[in-house]
Amino acid sequence: METNSDREPPAFECHDVSVSYDRKPVLYGIDVSVPGGSLCGIVGPNGAGKSTLIKAAMGLLPVEGGWVRMFGRPLDEVRPRVAYVPQRTSVDWDFPVNVMDVVLMGCGGKAGLWRRPTAADRELARESLEMVQMLPYADRQISQLSGGQQQRVFLARALAQRADLYFMDEPFTGVDAATERAIVTLLEGLRAKGGTIVAVHHDLTTAPEYFDRVILLNMRLVAAGPVEEVFTAELLQKTYGGRLTVLSELALRAQEARARRGV
């Protein structure tokens, strides 16, 4: 892959990023750099902060110190180039919209969130639905979709953004094997066109097959890099070998002390 890493800034880079939930620290000083044109999995045990990393990158959670850049720039400057696929379970699927309505949310970026959808927007939405083989369901009420179909609608919404960098939160959860395979093929297609995907992934057995890079995470960064270098028994053991309870407790205590001092 000749993504000239010396000249072009990485698609996604974060430096010394720490995040807390309800004042409880979940990520400490994360340094990650993902070059353009890669399919990168974020792997780690439950509660390791995988989703948190993505949410912090998208500005949905406040970052305490450190910085995040996409294509060498702050997110605000390159937002149209970055798409986000939230966890499927994060929304109410009884909400009164149909499949087309959801996909249209991805059309036209920020400006598209205000104007009435144009004919071009609709065409784009249809193309995106076709890419995930959901076009026949365009007029379907979202409450009638299966889990896998819901996931594909979310993907289509992100695809409609025609972004260069995709953050996906557990895109394979609750999806049947055939859909999972179809999604992987789709992601590989995006990568072939120079796109970058960063996805939270749960299944260790498929991770090396699906991704060319991985980020091993357990509240702090264990390792990040090409699969063949990082996806080793030793590093995985390190990732999954117990929570960092001491670190977590001490950090919480330190923060409380700071709060008491009124910092």
């Binding site: 500005g59 949310m105 598209g112 969130l113 104007r115 919404r157």
Partner: peptide, 17 residues
């Protein structure tokens, strides 16, 4: 459309600006 996104998926809305 802004209110629609806000109600259906505020996280996505924020991420999209």
């Amino acid at each position: 459309r802004g209110f629609l996104v806000l109600a259906f998926d505020p996280g996505y809305g924020r991420a999209a600006g």
